[in-house]
Design a protein around this nucleic acid. Structure first.
Lengths: 343, 343
DNA sequence: ACCCTTGTTTCCAACGTTATACAAGACGGA
DNA sequence: TCCGTCTTGTATAACGTTGGAAACAAGGGT
């Protein structure tokens, strides 16, 4: 049977509250009492019941993280970073994945494990503004990822337009001019909702290169298979780009597989830049040039947004919502630079 | 402010317990009362407070899952499967990673978020039998992964020896004879603790092929970089295997990168078999032949071991501990079969 | 000798829920 | 009519914790 404060109190011959005070490091306790209680705690092996504590205090010490898909290494790596960042604040992470379905995203925002979590970090894909506006749960919510909503919730992301421009600039600097964009939304390929697509357009425009609509390839999802399908479709349509900027590394990797199958060399025939800096991209036959978002910073900012709001709640401080920006770097590898000869 | 049973009770003009009865679908309630209460619940937007419920019932509905590293896609994919399996039983998953450190594994078993979790699924790497034996927390624990402990906890795994033998058999059937094993434990490379290494030995012995110690390459970890280092060390030592069986896909991928850098062709010069069936292995320049453990089955069995023990606890049923075995298949791809010519 | 302060401990109530015991009414059989 | 049984609802007491107020002791100033 579980040992409670009551058991310890009886054993030590003091009141329950005194034991509680010792456990919570209340300052005004005589050393002798403290020692007596501590000994009782140790002998009985007392461990506080967090459920009861949380019922009393109204906090659980648990943050939920909802990402689209753990099978995508970017989200897996991000989840790892969030777990570490949360641990630094004595929080534990409850994880869920939405599989990119609007319905599941909605479910999560509406009150996933209501009452059990102190806050929610969500990376939405399909969610619409009105879905979020209808949210009733009062736990702090922080959004991460590319999509932006005009709503009173903190948002953590990198500057996607600047990052995309840096990627495209790199390709332009290498002399490439027919730069395809792989990963437009399938349902509205021409009217972009992507910041990354906007960045592609902006950089091309700034350099006076025509943005050819035929070089924008839509995808049905964000996996390797979708990248492969998009690349195949592009080539089948007779397009012959000399570079590809992919929405993310998985799409780039799928695309590179198709190039390899069709005898196209990377980077000689087609240079490739991805996005996310997956470890996977460092070990292919051709290593992948990519935009590397600072995942640790994203995780840290998201966690601290939650903890900050929780602290602010106590203080009655209705802090304004913020757009938090994490850094990124462009990592140049073989898919744009070529491989150095062996030896 | 949060609405509680009390508020609903006042609004509906009944007692708190009656509302509770309605919420919990207690059968003996007159339709009129039920409807009245239900209307009150709907108008006030009542949502049960799980913390309080769990304090009362002694169950939280949360299962913890501790894996070594989320950055390893195998564990990420497995975590996804566990989340789904748990959801099927109305459980939520709290996730932690141990980073393969014995200390963190110990911490997790000792009482990670004590009292908040109903059960723990742990994939140990470094933990020793005595660590687990010293565990005091009473929540059910189920172990997954290759390592076996002689302890009263359920264990879920595939038949690693049989799986390894199937992989080696495949290579032997292709006519390979100098089959390296990549991924022995660095601290004791010759005295194997690996079931997979045992399987390699067993199959070679069964076919009368000498198991050359020089072909067993130790690793410091289980990542791509470790596979690359091990392969480089093997080649630098002057060994020239005609096939490689890697402890897992990441090691295989790291090794293949080194082969590619040194101008060795896969599978013509060296055939490669991995283990885990990561999606990543399907999209390299050379797709990877691999042993595919049934992750869904592993996740399901682990979750059901926990839920079963929780149910048994109520019944006072001290069920015997079990060794649960999930299935596997050998997936043949280009790294052993070669690529079909384009077109 | 008395009051006030300061430090230490105890008592009580509450967090929101469910289990247990019980009360009130309805119903059927003798 | 009376009693036992069944149905439906209520009152009360937990679950283990903490916050606040009250109680108690000891010491210092008047």
């Amino acid at each position: 049977m579980r040992v409670s404060l009551k058991d310890v109190a009886e054993y030590a011959g003091v009141s329950i509250k005194t034991v509680s005070n010792v456990v919570n490091k209340y300052p005004h306790i005589t050393p002798s009492t403290r020692e007596k209680v501590q000994r009782a705690i140790d002998t009985l092996g007392y461990r506080p019941n967090l459920t009861a504590r949380h019922l009393r205090k109204g906090r659980t010490g648990i943050i939920a993280l909802a990402v689209p898909e753990l099978g995508n290494p970017y989200f897996a790596e991000l989840a790892g970073a969030v777990i570490d960042a949360a641990a630094a604040h004595d929080y534990t992470v409850l994880l869920d994945h939405t599989q990119g379905s609007r319905e599941r995203e909605l479910l999560v925002t509406q009150g996933f494990q209501a009452q059990v979590i102190d806050g929610l970090i969500l990376n939405p894909l399909e969610l619409e503004t009105e879905d979020l506006a209808a949210r009733t749960d009062s736990a702090p919510l922080v959004l991460i990822g590319e999509r932006r909503y005009d709503l009173p919730h903190d948002h953590v992301a990198i500057d996607n337009i600047a990052a995309a421009r840096a990627a495209v600039r790199h390709l332009l600097d290498l002399g490439r001019r027919r730069i395809a964009f792989l990963g437009a939304r399938g349902d509205r390929p021409s009217q972009p909702s992507h910041l990354r697509l906007l960045g592609w357009q902006a950089e091309l425009a700034a350099r006076g290169v025509k943005a050819d609509d035929g070089l924008v390839a839509p995808v049905d999802g964000w996996e390797r298979a979708d990248g492969a399908a998009a690349m195949a479709a592009l080539l089948d349509a007779g397009e012959r780009p000399d570079a590809v900027f992919a929405y993310n590394d998985l799409i780039a990797i799928g695309a590179m597989r198709v190039m390899s199958e069709r005898g196209l060399r990377v980077p000689e025939d087609i240079a490739v830049v991805g996005f996310d800096d997956l470890t996977e991209g460092r070990y292919g036959a051709v290593t992948l040039t990519t935009v590397a978002p600072d995942k640790q910073a994203i995780a840290r900012m998201a966690v601290e947004s939650i903890t900050g709001r929780l602290a602010g709640k106590d203080a009655g401080d209705g802090a304004a919502t913020r757009q938090l920006q994490a850094g990124f770097t462009l990592v140049e590898r073989e898919s744009t630079r070529g491989r150095r000869p062996p030896g």
